[in-house]
């Protein structure tokens, strides 16, 4: 080997983030710790932002008086009803749009026209139609989850590998068999990621609807706390929403893992 031999410089690597455990919880604990310390040392005024321990106290109060379950169950009921019916209708209509030319020609422009409307703007109309009770809130959530579900479902149906459908036809499978055994599982990844989006939209609409007219519910609780300048309760309410969102996304993650095991 001659003297001017040198190793080839390494230029690869990077661009491949991998999961690093514990970092998330540590960042979380650090932020909360700084916040708590700031409050105790008097850097953060309790009127502007209560300490995490105060918010925790407000939450403990709620548990003691039994009002926590009252608020959470009222919210959960609306969320589940609105989301389940919205998603169910969305899947049906999305499949119709994905499978039939005539249905698609009718549905797609309507969806395009109605999807961008902030559904909360329609709440007054829903109150006139369905009254101030539960129905108008559920209808808002239902409407809000319906459109994104339709879009993700028919997009998912469109993206099913046409070769697989042709294979099904070439083996003489019936129409229903092809839809159930080839199109539905093939569209499942898109449907589930649509569910993630619609679930977040549902939580946003839930709080908005509860702020406009509700006795119980997390949104109502936050609004009341704000009106009374009870920032500790307000922060406790916001924390409940965060936990609700995390729980929903965890549940959907588990479902994805179970349903899409083949990937």
């Amino acid at each position: 080997m001659s003297d001017d031999a040198k190793p080839v410089p390494y230029r690869g690597g990077g661009f491949a983030p991998r999961p690093v455990g514990l970092v998330g919880p540590i960042v979380f604990a650090l932020v909360l710790g700084l916040w708590e310390a700031g409050s105790r040392l008097g850097w953060i005024s309790p009127i502007i932002l209560p300490a995490p321990s105060q918010a925790l106290g407000a939450l403990a109060d709620l548990v003691e008086t039994g009002r926590l379950w009252l608020h959470v169950s009222a919210s959960l009921q609306r969320l589940v009803q609105g989301w389940v019916f919205g998603a169910l209708l969305g899947v049906l209509v999305g499949f119709a749009a994905g499978l039939f030319s005539l249905a698609r020609a009718g549905i797609v422009p309507v969806v395009a026209a109605l999807f961008p409307i902030p559904k909360i703007a329609l709440l007054p109309l829903f109150i006139i139609w369905f009254g101030i009770g539960e129905e108008s809130k559920v209808a808002t959530i239902l409407f809000g989850t319906f459109f994104p579900t339709v879009i993700s479902v028919y997009g998912g149906v469109d993206n099913v590998d046409r070769n697989l459908i042709r294979m099904g036809q070439s083996f003489g499978l019936g129409w229903f068999s092809i839809v159930r055994k080839i199109v539905l599982p093939g569209a499942m990844p898109a449907i589930l990621s649509g569910f993630r989006i619609s679930a977040s939209i549902a939580i946003i609409l839930l709080v908005a609807a509860e702020m406009i007219g509700a006795e119980y519910g997390i949104g109502a609780y936050i609004l009341l706390a704000g009106n009374l300048m009870a920032t500790d309760q307000l922060v406790a309410g916001v924390a409940m929403l965060s936990i609700l969102g995390l729980t929903v996304s965890w549940v959907l993650g588990r479902i994805e893992k179970a349903v899409l095991r083949w990937r």
Binding site: N163, L164, R166, M167, K181, I182, P185, M188, W262, R263
Partner: peptide, 8 residues
């Protein structure tokens, strides 16, 4: 392209 269903 084989045309096997990946979920089966």
């Amino acid at each position: 392209d084989f045309a096997l269903l990946p979920w089966r």
